[in-house]
Design a protein around this nucleic acid. Sequence first.
DNA 1: TTGTATGCGTTATCAT
DNA 2: ATGATAACGCATACAA
Lengths: 348, 348
Amino acid sequence: MKRKITLKQIARELDVSISTVSKALRNSPEISEDTKQKVQAFAKLYNYKPNNIALSLKNRKTNTIGIIIPEIVHHFFSKVIRGVELVANKRGYNVIVGLSNESFSKEVINMEMLANGSIDGFILSISKETLQLQDYHHFNETMDQGMPVVMFDRVVSDIKCDKVIVNDFGGAKRAVEKLISNNCKQIALITTKDYVSVGKLRTQGYMEALKESGFELKSSLILKLDDRLDYEVHLEALEKEIEQLFKSNTAIDGVFAVNELYALSAMKVARKLGLEIPRDVQVIGFTDGVLSKHSTPSLSTVSQHAQIMGERAADLLINKLETVSTEAEEEYQTIVIETDLIERESTK
Amino acid sequence: MKRKITLKQIARELDVSISTVSKALRNSPEISEDTKQKVQAFAKLYNYKPNNIALSLKNRKTNTIGIIIPEIVHHFFSKVIRGVELVANKRGYNVIVGLSNESFSKEVINMEMLANGSIDGFILSISKETLQLQDYHHFNETMDQGMPVVMFDRVVSDIKCDKVIVNDFGGAKRAVEKLISNNCKQIALITTKDYVSVGKLRTQGYMEALKESGFELKSSLILKLDDRLDYEVHLEALEKEIEQLFKSNTAIDGVFAVNELYALSAMKVARKLGLEIPRDVQVIGFTDGVLSKHSTPSLSTVSQHAQIMGERAADLLINKLETVSTEAEEEYQTIVIETDLIERESTK
DNA sequence: TTGTATGCGTTATCAT
DNA sequence: ATGATAACGCATACAA
């Protein structure tokens, strides 16, 4: 077992100084061709590679970016990671992952752990608990220390930083407009409580679409679910709520749901109640998920382009890292990713 | 914007030496209560945290583990990551993620990048291309340099290292036995080409189950798909192959598929051909996926406990990292994770 | 009780 | 053309 070789060892073996070795390997013109040859050959033979940690310390730059997400077992977030990874690697960076598990304290701890020199900047999406508590001190402190932060998807306007978001409002609006143009008269909304920013925006898109088309808003058609409950686990609870919605509004002929699971559950419940999709009820979801594509009937959905979000976020962060910050000009930008309406079998 | 504070700055401010500060912060008995108080108060005020990179360099230990997987947008792998992350964080480690994207060269590059000091050890699952090429030099070289490697799921016996695998053979066997005991007489297998180790093992489980029950093996009932094709994209191609299978074996009354997508496609095709599930055909898949649970009918499946695999792998690696290697005793272990058969609506 | 010196691996600056 | 030295931030053995 040969341990990783260092400059020092090469120097000792070849009986030259460390700095000579270093220069020779970087092809410095200061060094004679002879020595270069010798050193480079030796280095290749022993497969020398500079130690990243030493470089990081010296350069005060790790070439690593930290990404903190609420949950990795989630198609949307893993696609974002893939996007980040893709761009990061292409531009010479590594990616280190932290999971907040939707918890405030884990988010804080994870960020502190990484902020102590391990990474050059953050890409993150805020946990639900943090959104509820509205405690954003850790973000601000991190940025105060000169560590750039790019937020994606779940963001808050109070925080001054670069952001990449989905056009939740517009995507939702277009989805509902589609239902309207498909002749739906009673369009239900299945959404989350308002503290989830994206849920709120999608809800607003729904309302705006109805308003513009001259529909009246019926609050009985809106089901706001508390997604602190893990509905992956409590699926029956979810279905019960939706069933209630359908039963108290028998004329529902369209459903817009702010995520995939809600949409699928709506289809399931509707079918159970003897309604046929899309003949009796048309359904559109909001997601980048895999369920939509493979469900029966397959689900029409607003696609979020998660991977592109990751790519944009990574580019934004790395640009900031590699630009000589002329201080003062603290200009933050927000990139809005447009959505696509993917029409499948759940709409006419 | 106050940059991160260092020992040196604290020392200068308080007019003591760096080592005094260092000792005071670590509560060394060498230092007087007075100075300790002063230093600790100051440190807390300025929120001092030791620089990870400096510590890593000094200790020659990064407390970071690298995980290399073929694909992150995949329920199985992201669950494994979650397991790794969970244990790693609990034990004071960070996780850095590299994606091979099923490519040999990306796998090699990614490993080299991380092996140069960034991490203490690897957890990885081999890419398909690497499995085909059977070129494992990068794994061996990494281990030669004293960096421990734990492989999971996709492993090869040629490589001497710790491993965490699923009981693919047993899981498949039990699934097929279930179909048999449910009175299936013509059980088809939808699997991958043999170079994918897990596919091969599951195929063997299928065969063994049939053999033990005295069934004859009919090669016409076995469909081996080349999964270099991305069937997520070429879904129609997949369905066509399966349709062919059903048409040339009209008596098929059971299907065992080695993954979720194959199983779902089988159900879809069967329905299209007028067969009802599970009345006419019973189907069992193999996976940890989310599709199975939400499909209609929901899919009975062999669960792999991906998160547990990640946890075990992390424990294995960290144990190795933290044990004083008495050299010589190079004992590697292979942990086998048992599967569960989850019965849902696609079986009787 | 406090401070000095050394080293982790590297590069850059400044001698020789 | 080559080498000595300092510095990145920290911890520690050893002096004072």
